[in-house]
Computed example of a mutant assay.
Amino acid sequence: MTADGVAVTTRAGAVRAGAAILTVSTAVLAGDALRLPSGADPWREAAAALPLGRNEKVFLEIGRDTAFEPDTHAYSNLHDSRSASYSIRPNGWPVIEAFLGGDGARIVEEEGPAAGFAHVSAELVALFGSDVASAVRPLAATSWSRMASIGGAYSCALPGRSQARARLAQPFEDRLFFAGEATHPHDFTTAHGAHDSGRRAADEAIAALSGRRLLGRQGPLAAGARAVG
């Protein structure tokens, strides 16, 4: 923090501004990768109460004509915690998206994309028959849990700690503001929740900066009198 705002120190140098919005994941915020101002421990503690879940996606390309209908969905063995849910030919594209959570995501995280491709290919064969094996090929896979800049999927509050979302959303000294899906009171774990939280944090920052400018132009007594009036 500086006398009149914030300073962000990076490898490329320091960036100074009147305020900043921090949108890193809760895993990053709770860790030691960022050096925050003294007094920000309650925000780190709130982030630690909102750890990230384990989810990954594996994408397969459909290499030839198959019986897959566009925009269809399928589920593998619902009694197996490693099983995936499948979005098949979304928007008609020749792609299959496999969504893995928990133990299924751990396969990708710990054993790598190749193991993830093998796992979902075997599930698709079990669902649709052996011809599928020659019809699909690996396209891409996420690695959110292995990325130091993310560290997982979306946030999930520890039992009895859902109030940490409101704590994390509070500004720090009206200069450091927090956004991200984990700060949304209702729409956490969603893209629109993250988007809305960014707008909320931006509004807070603009209001704080505007109030600071008003105070600077008129002085504390004049600004206070105007607020009372």
Results as ranks from 00 to 15, higher is better:
Val125Phe: 06
Gly102Glu: 05
Ala140Glu: 15
Ile96Ser: 00
Ala114Cys: 06
Arg212Pro: 01
Leu221Lys: 11
Ala7Asn: 00
Ala98Val: 14
Arg106Ala: 15
Met1Tyr: 03
Ala47Ser: 04
Gly18Cys: 09
Ser83Asn: 06
Glu45Asn: 12
Pro185Tyr: 13
Arg89Ile: 14
Leu100His: 08
Glu97Pro: 12
Gly13Ala: 11
Arg54Ser: 07
Ala3Met: 03
Pro51Gly: 11
Phe128Ile: 10
Thr142Pro: 00
Arg64Ser: 03
Arg16Ile: 04
Val95Phe: 13
Ala135His: 06
Met147Phe: 10
Gly53Tyr: 02
Thr142Ile: 10
Gly13Leu: 08
Arg167Pro: 01
Arg199Cys: 08
Glu109Asp: 13
Gly193Ala: 09
Gly180His: 15
Thr183Met: 05
Arg213Phe: 15
Arg11Asn: 11
Ala17Phe: 12
Ala182Glu: 03
Gly18Ile: 03
Ala115Ile: 10
Ala48His: 09
Phe128Gly: 01
Gly160Trp: 01
Val125Thr: 09
Ala122Pro: 12
Val125Trp: 05
Gly219Asn: 13
Asp174Pro: 01
Asn91Ser: 15
Ala140Lys: 09
Met147His: 10
Arg199Ser: 06
Gly39Ser: 10
Ala33Tyr: 06
Ala207Asp: 07
Ala227Arg: 08
Ser81Asp: 04
Ala126His: 07
Val15Leu: 02
Ser38Thr: 06
Pro70His: 02
Asp41His: 02
